[in-house]
């Protein structure tokens, strides 16, 4: 069984270590992965800013790269991109019946990373060990828009040594929102500081998420708070794949 793996562009650009960890995890579980080189990004930043037509060529590239007969399944490491492809591409392809159909077919065999492990492979204990206190950000796209609530928590629960502490309003938006972050920095800043504060208040040493863009944002927020004295200790920011790959 061949799996087409979609890490999301931020993994390719900024955080290869997250992608590497995810590949390790999936390969140990016996998955045969492929990562087609002919695509870059789902392009949701364009659609979400209103540039639907600009997103069209980008979306076509993603479908061409991932909708291939040799791939049995599609697994996305980033919930947000997965949501864009299965829920938003139909808007982009509304006048293109061929790609619309291909998107629907692809959506039927698509899984988000944690959902794939727990609900498709039926695995929760992956033999990981991570001895530290962890809190988990329930990102909007994974939790609300894809409706994946239990799988990440089940996976974390099975990690040896991991002590989970729930943060207040764990499913409140971190304020990333794609270009929103750049266009409305004051509001986005206020949102991420509040998210960071709820993380800090748990006392946990590690913040874990299943959506890479949120991690970029939260990490940036914590780092800024650390420099200006609002935070007096280091808090690690990790993708859940890195925890599942850990043998610490």
């Amino acid at each position: 069984m061949k799996i087409a793996f979609f890490p999301g562009c931020m993994v390719d650009m900024i955080y290869p270590e997250i992608g590497i960890a995810a590949v390790n995890v999936l390969e140990r579980l016996g998955c045969d992965l492929e990562y087609p080189d002919e695509q870059v990004c789902c392009g949701q930043g364009l659609l979400n800013s209103g540039y639907r037509d600009f997103n069209y060529p980008v979306a076509k590239m993603v479908i061409d790269a991932y909708d291939r007969p040799e791939y049995d399944l599609f697994v996305s490491l980033t919930g947000s991109c997965m949501n864009a492809i299965i829920n938003d591409y139909p808007i982009i392809f509304k006048d293109d019946p061929v790609y619309l159909e291909r998107t629907k077919k692809l959506a039927e065999r698509s899984y988000e990373f944690t959902d794939f492990i727990v609900n498709y492979l039926g695995k929760t204990d992956l033999g990981a060990s991570f001895h530290d206190t962890v809190t988990y950000h329930k990102s909007c796209h994974v939790t609300r828009l894809l409706g994946i609530k239990e799988p990440p928590l089940k996976l974390l629960e099975a990690v040896d040594g991991l002590q989970y502490i729930e943060m207040e309003h764990a499913d409140r938006c971190c304020g990333f929102g794609g270009t929103f972050s750049f266009k409305q920095p004051e509001i986005a800043g206020e949102m991420v500081y509040e998210k960071c504060q709820t993380i800090i208040d748990t006392g946990a040493n590690v913040l874990v998420g299943a959506d890479v863009p949120c991690l970029l944002n939260i990490k940036g927020g914590l780092s800024r708070m650390r420099s200006d004295g609002r935070l007096d200790r280091d808090i690690r920011v990790m993708h859940i794949a890195q925890i599942l790959d850990a043998r610490e």
């Binding site: 650009m13 900024i14 290869p16 992608g19 590497i20 990562y35 750049f182 991420v192 990490k219 940036g220």
Partner: peptide
């Protein structure tokens, strides 16, 4: 827009696709 309120991690030296 970003750095006025948050830090922004720089691009990594190597691409994930190369590693893969």
């Amino acid at each position: 827009g970003w750095t006025s309120t948050r830090d922004f991690d720089v691009l990594s030296k190597d691409r994930f696709r190369t590693w893969f």
